[in-house]
């Protein structure tokens, strides 16, 4: 297939960027989207031009590194799919494809399509953990049974890959889905219970500090999340937050 690509080019964090147009040809429908980008970069390098910088690593949909806004949607048109798992068979010969970085004040552009998502790390650092030392002298793993339903829900929340598609797609650039996934996971497990109040208060405080927008429940994040993290988690976090705000001293 032959394609026209409109790609955001920005040389550095403090430089103004703009959309540039490129053509690629002989793209196989079995290629992944990033392999198509490889083809483009190969072409650019051979022509003596600057290749497009983009983040990617595992290319199997789990590391959360890839982050492209493709044709107006985070990770492209398919549901439950990261950019690296999007294949060119989802496009047609002759298509024009817009490719942009995640856009949010809390995700500043590093170069071209690469953004800085360390704000997510700082939110986790604010409380997204259980305070247990790694001594190995904890109680036996089976000492506290966890109802299967809760374990499964905690797992579902924990499958978040931290890619930031929720923020990218949210009309308000809100990080609620990401934060609530971690809050939920730990709130659903007995191990996370002792710190649940402090955790939610601190994580939300950090989230606000990072400059993410507010949740207006459009539900776009849930639709675009490559791991299908549910809005139920946001409700749970709201509950946790209310409860913590009321009961904390």
């Amino acid at each position: 297939m032959n394609l026209t690509l409109k790609i955001w080019r920005q040389a550095g964090p403090s430089v103004i960027g703009k959309m540039e147009t490129y053509k690629v040809s002989d793209i196989s429908p079995d290629m992944s989207f990033l392999e198509m980008m490889d083809v483009l970069n190969d072409q650019l390098i051979r022509d003596g031009k600057d290749p497009v910088a983009f983040d990617h690593d595992c290319r199997e949909g789990i590391c959360g590194m890839c982050s492209m806004y493709i044709n107006g949607q985070a990770h492209g048109p398919n549901r439950g799919t990261t950019t690296c798992q999007l294949h060119m068979r989802s496009f047609k010969d002759g298509d024009t494809i817009y490719i942009e970085p995640w856009r949010a004040a809390a995700f500043p552009v590093i170069k071209d399509l690469s953004v800085d998502r360390s704000s997510f790390d700082r939110i986790i650092q604010a409380g997204g953990y259980v305070s247990v030392n790694t001594s190995g002298n904890t109680q036996d793993a089976n000492a506290i049974p966890v109802p299967k339903e809760n374990a499964d829900k905690a797992f579902d929340a924990a499958t978040c890959i931290g890619c930031g598609a929720c923020v990218a797609t949210c009309t308000n650039s809100s990080a609620m889905l990401f934060v609530s996934a971690k809050v939920s996971q730990l709130a659903l497990l007995p191990q996370g219970d002792p710190e649940r109040e402090l955790r939610v208060l601190r994580m939300v405080e950090q989230m606000d500090k990072e400059g993410f927008g507010n949740c207006s429940n459009t539900g776009a994040c849930e639709v675009e999340c490559p791991k299908g993290i549910s809005l139920e988690n946001i409700a749970r976090m709201n509950r946790e937050y209310l409860r913590a705000s009321v009961t904390s001293e």
């Binding site: 953990y129 259980v130 190995g136 904890t138 049974p145 191990q191």
Partner: peptide, 13 residues
Amino acid sequence: IDQCVAQGVPFAR
């Protein structure tokens, strides 16, 4: 396994 469970790793149950 004990350590990971204590950290809140949601293993299958």
